[in-house]
């Protein structure tokens, strides 16, 4: 009783009781909100795993889909190949450009261009992916190159670019100035400081950003509809032939009425989710290690 009194002078006060009751209700509401917010992820994971595992098989991973969606069997090997192929090319294009832009912003912050670049990189992250697809369609696909691996990769690279640039900017800023000053003190040129000191110091973070961008690109559908189009077989050519990807296959088979196609779509979703989630989790683990190292 004495303890209670010492905790609050208004214990006997009905207003205080009401306040505390309200506090408890709010806590319940918040926990309820958390449950509601987490539910979709649980439901998606559960459903994708349940139906995906049911339809997943060695055959699915190692063969291509049947010609007609109504037939059972086959798999999305061509989609996996297409996804990896396009994402790889997109990375080759966007990672150097994005890191270059971020380095410019951080290391040449006094330039008048820097804040502009920074702001518009931010803006670019918000550009709808379908618009990027439209742009590449109108410039590249109609420009005689046609639906192709290349067109798809270019669209993905434009989506990856701002993600790479912004995350690179963040990690480059985390590199302590002491390191830079020490290197300058030893007589290093600026380009040497950047390439030999700053980039290596930030390498984990740069890789993290690139991996998150790759994860995002691997899951994109809309821009590929207008640029890669789709294919039924493994496509190795860069131009001259339409390419396909896991998301495109899932999209086209999910829409239809066939059970066999739906089964493949679920298995494909499982494959794609694994790809994307592993990349994401690995990237986060890597970035956590970096920040811990940086702090220590």
């Amino acid at each position: 009783m004495t303890i209670m009194t010492s905790r609050s002078l208004h214990d006997a006060d009905p207003a205080a009781l009401r306040r505390r009751r309200r506090d408890r209700i709010v806590t319940v509401v918040l926990v309820g909100a958390v449950a509601l917010a987490v539910m979709p992820l649980v439901m998606i994971l559960f459903e994708v795993v349940r139906r995906g595992v049911g339809a997943m098989s060695w055959e699915f991973l190692t063969s291509v889909q049947p010609f007609s969606q109504r037939r059972p069997g086959g798999g999305y090997l061509h989609g996996l190949v297409g996804t990896l192929y396009m994402v790889a090319i997109a990375s080759l294009l966007s990672v150097p450009l994005g890191i270059g832009a971020a380095t410019f912003v951080v290391e040449y912050g006094q330039s008048r261009l820097s804040p502009l670049i920074r702001f518009f990189t931010d803006v670019m992250t918000g550009v709808p992916s379908i618009f990027v697809g439209l742009f590449i369609y109108s410039v590249v696909v109609q420009g005689r190159i046609g639906f192709s691996t290349l067109a798809g990769a270019l669209a993905l690279s434009l989506l990856m670019l701002p993600i790479v640039a912004r995350s690179a900017e963040e990690v480059l800023r985390l590199v302590p100035d002491d390191l830079r000053n020490a290197a300058y003190g030893l007589g290093a040129h600026r380009w040497q400081v950047v390439t030999r000191v700053v980039w290596p110091a930030a390498s984990n973070g740069l890789v993290t950003g690139a991996m998150l961008a790759v994860a995002r690109a691997a899951g994109e559908t809309a821009p590929l509809l207008l640029t890669a189009l789709g294919a039924f077989e493994i496509v190795t050519r860069l131009v001259g032939e339409a390419q396909t990807a896991l998301p495109l296959l899932i999209y086209s088979e999910a829409r239809g009425p066939y059970e066999a196609a739906h089964a493949r779509a679920w298995a494909g979703a499982l494959e794609l989710m694994l790809l994307v989630l592993i990349l994401t989790i690995a990237a986060r683990a890597l970035s956590r290690r970096t920040t811990r190292n940086g702090n220590g």
């Binding site: 270019l154 190795t236 050519r237 860069l238 001259g240």
Partner: peptide, 16 residues
């Protein structure tokens, strides 16, 4: 970017 990629295509079609 297009130029870079055009160079890359050259390589790829040669392979083919």
């Amino acid at each position: 970017v297009l130029a870079l990629v055009a160079a890359a295509c050259g390589g790829a079609s040669n392979d083919d």
